[in-house]
Design a binder for these strands. Structure first.
Lengths: 185, 185
DNA sequence: GCTAACCTTAACGTAAACGGCAAGGTTCGC
DNA sequence: GCGAACCTTGCCGTTTACGTTAAGGTTAGC
């Protein structure tokens, strides 16, 4: 409670947290955090004298990133791992880019970065499009219902015809690979 | 191969498929389809004389819906189950709505429907927002890289400063419930 | 300098989402 | 009316993403 680690006269305190503090802060469990480290999604950050894991703000950011991808986007940890690797590669590329003046080299770095970015975008776009299509439909439905309800409460006649029937949205064959050959003539 | 089931003189053939055909069509496995039925996501549709599962177009739609939610939106089958139940309830509500003329009853049905729809929307909005925020950032990055590359290939000076550093996007505390008490006693 | 609270690794357990196999019944073309 | 191909219901195996002890070291308050 009465804890002020900010030694005003010393160096800028790095604000290192132990695993339970991190977990509480992010709404995760200590086990999950260790597991992410186990999978290589997270670098140990630092260890105390007695080998306690210590996390800095960057670690927190990274964990927030992981949590967001997991909870909100429904990515698997394997997919998240790829995204994080792409992020890391991006960082490294920026370094390499800065430390070279060779134009061909720079071009290669940029092309690699572009490739990664396009893969990321493709990975995300499929999800977004489907989900927002559903959202649009759901919200249209909500507005319809609200109008209907307003009509009813105003004693008006409900003349709004109910929209389409059946299962909503989703019809495009993003997967529709009717298997392989099959030679259907 | 020389198979035309459309008996032009008989009734409108319901076009029932066996499980392997369904699986192939949708890019799933027979096991997965049985599993979905096991979980109650799907009604048997129909059974042949020898209790073979037979699927109609509505089943196909429903399965496409499930697959889309699973693959594209990253929903768990439990979440999908809820969404489907809401859909089913919606259908039933429409029936109930049509078969009653009681205004209070109708109002209750509409309020229930509105509630479900709002829950669906909330469930979807979190996902969409996070994912499209990421997408925006990724695409901004792509455009930056493309400009950079174009400059380089045109022999121009790359004056574009690299954008932000560190882990991208995601900072809002949609989860950030700093875990209130400890009260586990 | 003791001890309660927290941490470590190691190991096993579990729910979800199927994969795969066994043992047997069903379809269907010939 | 028969065999190959497909289907059925079990039931056990597997991967993912952790939960849960177990058996100890570490920190921090008093």
């Amino acid at each position: 409670m009465t804890n002020e680690t900010t030694a005003a006269t010393e160096d800028a305190a790095p604000r290192l947290l132990k695993i339970a503090e991190v977990a509480e802060e992010l709404g995760l469990t200590a086990r999950a955090v260790r597991y992410y480290e186990e999978l290589g999604l997270l670098k140990p950050a630092a260890r105390s004298e007695g080998s306690y894991r210590l996390f800095d703000d960057d670690d927190l950011e990274r964990l927030r990133f992981i949590r967001g991808l997991r909870d909100d986007a429904g990515f698997s940890l394997a997919e998240i791992s790829r995204l994080l690797e792409d992020e890391d590669a991006r960082e490294r590329n920026r370094e390499r880019f800065r430390t070279t003046t060779d134009l061909g080299e720079r071009r290669k770095i940029l092309l690699d970065a572009l490739d990664r970015v396009e893969r990321q975008a493709t990975s995300l776009r499929g999800k977004t499009e489907r989900i927002s299509a559903m959202l649009d439909e759901v919200e249209a439905r909500r507005e319809h219902l609200q109008r209907h309800l307003a009509d009813l409460e105003a004693g008006r006649e409900p003349l709004h015809p109910p929209p389409t029937t059946g299962v909503p949205v989703l019809a495009e064959p993003s997967h529709a690979q009717p298997a392989h050959e099959e030679a259907r003539s």
